[in-house]
Design a protein around this nucleic acid. Structure first.
Lengths: 190, 190
DNA sequence: TTAACTCGTTGACTTTGGTTAAGAAATGGC
DNA sequence: GCCATTTCTTAACCAAAGTCAACGAGTTAA
């Protein structure tokens, strides 16, 4: 499993093999069962994750309904926006599959940043990349219909369609489960 | 004008007054007339901005229509997602008012990061904050109606309603100008 | 001053998605 | 296996937003 982590780092950073090794050797892996809540709304977040196997969903509850914000799968970093901050989370983080993840804490992060400024630099660049993705999602969301968003999701992350229940996909796409069902029906007729 | 920059830095970073002074003294200010294109789609971005006065709008063109992504006003940093990268921009950046901004370049940024690692650290944290805002926007967009988004915009950024033409606000809210007109009419009747 | 544009508004009509309710299918626990 | 629960689908109806077209106010340019 630690290989996955090394692979991720060499793909997403410009860190030396030596440094990557140091990180991998000092990293902590955890296993979670499907259904485990990693963070509840109202709680402080003191862990971030890199998924090696499995799937994590973030959501919030509005008007009594779960609204899925994001699905995270293999090789994706999961960092709650209040990670390491003294503010309560608005979001829930839940494992929707049995999941193995590499854990990070604010202390450990700070230590690493101190020891190897290189890592902070890479972290900044990675954050910028994730932000670009987020901005793109928002732009894309505004200018497309629910049907187009479903098609795009099916194209970009086909595995998710299989892995997540439909009502979660629906709220992720910003529609009701009924609407998603209709969209799928319309598409299947073509 | 440089005071504005110092004010921004002391509000948004934990940098020492000394360091802030260094930055302010080395910063370059530029003036742009209303209508100036700061970046066109397809171009590389080698400048980022901190607005001291004025308003910048980013948009993309889809199906021949301008879709407004974001409005940036006083004290907001404007960093195209491809800033300093070797990839062409998908977005246009336009001054919709006469604007004064502080300019940054990738070279200058790197130099500063090298000299003062503190600054890179602050930059990372600022990026994380901006990302949180972006994620929140996306979440908020998904779970609200156009009317609610208009009300929220009017509450959060009342000046924008006055400063930007309605068709730009409409595409920012993700609706047609006709719809926004109707939403405003409905609201005025209450 | 007039002609041409742009922008915002309005109306008629269509399409899409939400709501409610019911039933079918799948899942999980015993 | 069987029952309870959850999830998915379908249908009828409604509300919101898109489309198309027309019009008026304001601006610009000849």
């Amino acid at each position: 499993m630690k290989d996955e982590l090394a692979k991720f780092l060499s793909k997403n950073t410009t860190l030396s093999d030596e440094l990557i090794n140091t990180i991998v050797e000092n990293s902590i892996l955890e296993r979670y069962r499907k259904g485990t809540m990693l963070l509840n709304a109202g709680e402080l977040s003191n862990k971030c994750y890199l998924i090696l196997k499995g799937c994590i969903r973030s959501y919030l509850i509005k008007d009594g309904e779960e609204k899925t914000i994001e699905f995270y799968t293999e090789e994706q970093p999961v960092s709650p926006v209040n990670f390491g901050k003294n503010t309560p989370s608005d979001y829930y983080f839940e494992c929707i599959e049995d999941t193995i993840a590499c854990i990070g804490t604010p202390q450990q992060e700070n230590e690493m940043f101190q020891k190897f400024p290189q890592i902070e630099s890479n972290s900044r660049i990675m954050t910028e990349t994730i932000m670009a993705t987020c901005q793109e999602s928002l732009a894309n969301y505004k200018i497309t219909s629910a049907k187009d968003r479903y098609l795009k999701l099916r194209k970009d992350r086909p595995d998710l369609i299989q892995r997540a229940p439909q009502y979660q996909l629906a709220s992720y796409l910003g529609v009701t489960p009924e609407s998603l069902s209709r969209i799928r029906k319309r598409l299947s007729k073509i």
